[in-house]
Design a protein around this nucleic acid. Sequence first.
DNA 1: CTGAAAGCGCTTACAG
DNA 2: CTGAAAGCGCTTACAG
Lengths: 353, 353
Amino acid sequence: MAFKKNGNRAATLADVGREAGVSAMAASAVLNGAKTSTRISMVTRDRILAAAKKLRYRANVAARALAYRRMNTIGVAAVIEGGELNQYFLNVFNGILEGARERSQNTTVFTLQNWIEDSQRLLGFCDGRIDGMILVCPNLASQSVENLPSHTPFVAIHPNQVIKGVAFLESDEEEGAFAMVQHLIEKGHRRILHLSGGRGLISTARRIKGYQNALKKAQIAAPENMIIEAGFSIARGKEAMARFLQNVDAKALPDAVFCASDSIAVGAMEALAEKGIHVPEDISVAGFDDTLLARTTRPQLSTVRQPLRKMGYDAVDTLIRAIENRDNEPSPTSERKGYVTELVFRASIANRN
Amino acid sequence: MAFKKNGNRAATLADVGREAGVSAMAASAVLNGAKTSTRISMVTRDRILAAAKKLRYRANVAARALAYRRMNTIGVAAVIEGGELNQYFLNVFNGILEGARERSQNTTVFTLQNWIEDSQRLLGFCDGRIDGMILVCPNLASQSVENLPSHTPFVAIHPNQVIKGVAFLESDEEEGAFAMVQHLIEKGHRRILHLSGGRGLISTARRIKGYQNALKKAQIAAPENMIIEAGFSIARGKEAMARFLQNVDAKALPDAVFCASDSIAVGAMEALAEKGIHVPEDISVAGFDDTLLARTTRPQLSTVRQPLRKMGYDAVDTLIRAIENRDNEPSPTSERKGYVTELVFRASIANRN
DNA sequence: CTGAAAGCGCTTACAG
DNA sequence: CTGAAAGCGCTTACAG
């Protein structure tokens, strides 16, 4: 009984082979399904299996990845604002996890502080640890990501631009905003305030456009000062709503507030509550996204549902196809995959007819 | 100009060395700080740097990990119930991400369906892809994880048991429950319902114990039927509250409900709202955890704060120490790190004095 | 049916 | 100051 000074090292193929009295390759063939001849006699096969079990053998992924040129891991990059992953990300991420699990892929999360400043770090992640990367980037301002490495495929969810060679998924935000504002109008609201997303984002612009078009179609005047820039967070929504309320007396309250995200809506509702203004009796509120937040407010929020979870799920699919085509594809395309939004009615919109 | 048919392959040290007219080791020394002699002449150093930049060289982690025996990646395992990561996890995870980022470690999330059935999968993750693993396991029933591999260190957050060789972090749940119920009593509540966590969890038992002790200390009778088993989720909380309300007429409503988690409290508030019962005018509600949920309800929830984010952050620290001691440590200990809870007062508790 | 060889891209001793 | 060698643990051709 030889004393093996391997400390806490995990057993290797060589260890297993030695234990079973065969070569490491034979062990590789039965344990890891290596593509060498599959026919190993039943008896030695069983010996190898027994040895592996005894030694608690696990193929080392680093070694395997090096030889096989594939990590079976996908990266997910997101910017965290205020140090917290938000509900939007959580929804998308749940879909990504589901897709990855179905395809036996692992998931690595990379958090960035800021797309512009950290876009170089993105390159650093393409060092063999992942086979491809999903960018969750609804908050990506234009021209902040470029020069992505060609040897690692990327897929973007809600980028606000076309990134060269990167497939992207987005939902019809303008259409969703249009439908929600039209719904508010149908329910008898005329003076509709819009709390918008952050400056410079296509998402923001698209939601404003949908809002404006719905008003125009109903031939309702849309004064400039009814669009207030907020930004995609609870804090910004609250701040913007409070700012608006300061300059307006109770009689002149709008009929409704259409918020560019659920988080903005939550903030707005907080600001309204602090002024003793009731939703939806005094004012209706509508959100956008349909994250978990929409169900935790009181009253629950009517909102525009984006299929975030499905988009995350599909992104995995798109990415894996790109990974598998890595070597034969001439050049990756910036293919777009679109999703329809739908209205979700809860309790935050009153009927004023 | 030789045509290199390397498809979309990333540049290697050999490529950089060739480009700069030096060996791969010299390149390794400059680019990756390999421990070989550090003194490379300035001129060749610059040549190497230039070549690396031109070729966009990135050290391949799989190769590096194999040689260096370290992945610089930590695993995070959690059970997702109902297919969704919850707020509890999100809070802990934010702390883990922060700690990992500070120490330049990557993070890989492994989701399990069920601790008992998937505990074998945990072993499968210890295959060199991670250097250590954090178990986020407030929902771990006893004896469901054992036989963890000795070559990969583990740290557990809120396991409900001592796992051999695994350091663990937990907060004083019993103390927190005690303090909250005592606070309710001070505010004039006498009949206090408890909506408990899932069966078989120490967390559940500890919160019940704290509840009971506070009543006992105040010499308030605690009838058995004032403890209702719910389970740690919004749906279970709602269901349990609704079930209770069915058997009770409006006059006999308790003064307060102490919920074993914020999610239970959110569900309870939904059930109460559906019956037209107002919080806190008709009944006070208290939660536990202080996740984001506590701030999104209307009224906002008074709750017992567990320092989840800090616990996640600290778990990284504990784990990394274990990783670095991997080879010299005789045998890892089941060291415990405790955290105090604190009460957070918002608007869901009335003063009945 | 099974094994010896070479290589994935990086290390760390060891020479010079 | 720099390079040739051997090895991390696994592969895939190629022999026999």
